[in-house]
Nucleic acid binder design. Structure first.
Lengths: 114, 114
DNA sequence: CTAACATGAGTCATATATAAACCATTTCAT
DNA sequence: ATGAAATGGTTTATATATGACTCATGTTAG
């Protein structure tokens, strides 16, 4: 079964995606690309691109990133190129390997019995 | 009708999301948060969080960003805070207002007829 | 000015993502 | 060591996102 979902997003998430949407649209127009063209290149429908540029939170993250990449909007801090992003991935893997595998909660020592 | 879709993503997109996933997982474990906890806070299921941490490109962008926000992975360069991100949104709006509204293709003047 | 084109917005059928539940395995605290 | 807890990997029913159309409006090049 599936609980009927009316998801609530934090203000920060909403605005982050709004910014991303605006950046995408700007970049697209600056490069004189039509919605149809970008959609084709990204392998999505024009309606989908419309939703992305309207900051629809429900779009697939892959589609959004793909479009961003196509119009040249960089996604993370230092990840401008494939090379740098790969380095960062490796760093993150190293880091992950040093961390514990699971996140056990600190046991509440119960002394609230009086 | 709907064409059955086997979407292809660029290498860059894949790796960008892979990096994001790794950063999220690292951050979660560092903070000793279980998958269940983070899922609850984000208002998603544990299975969803698992896919996010496995860099599944088909997750909703809103869910991914929400999780990133919760564990403290920043999405843009300088947009650590709501205030800075809002400034950037405004800047992007200004910029957008100066651009043409539609992206007309430059007419190919055909002189390739000899 | 105006025709061609880009975009916005809505509908609909259906492919697909999602939440829930379950079990097996791994990991960690004690 | 051992048990409690966390995680991985399924499966399934259903809500939902998506692509394809269509029409209306806006915009721009010429």
């Amino acid at each position: 079964m599936r609980k009927s979902v009316k998801r609530a997003y934090s203000r920060y998430t909403e605005e982050a995606i709004c910014l991303l949407a605006n950046l995408i649209r700007s970049a697209r127009i600056e490069q004189k690309l039509t919605t149809q063209e970008v959609a084709d290149r990204a392998g999505i429908s024009r309606s989908m691109l419309q939703r992305i540029e309207k900051a629809d939170l429900r779009c697939q993250v892959g589609a959004v990133f793909e479009v961003a990449t196509i119009v040249g909007v960089s996604l993370f801090d230092a990840s401008q190129s494939l090379t740098t992003i790969r380095k960062e991935i490796n760093r993150s893997k190293e880091k992950l390997s040093l961390l514990p595998k699971t996140a056990h909660k600190a046991h509440k020592v119960v002394d609230d019995d009086f």
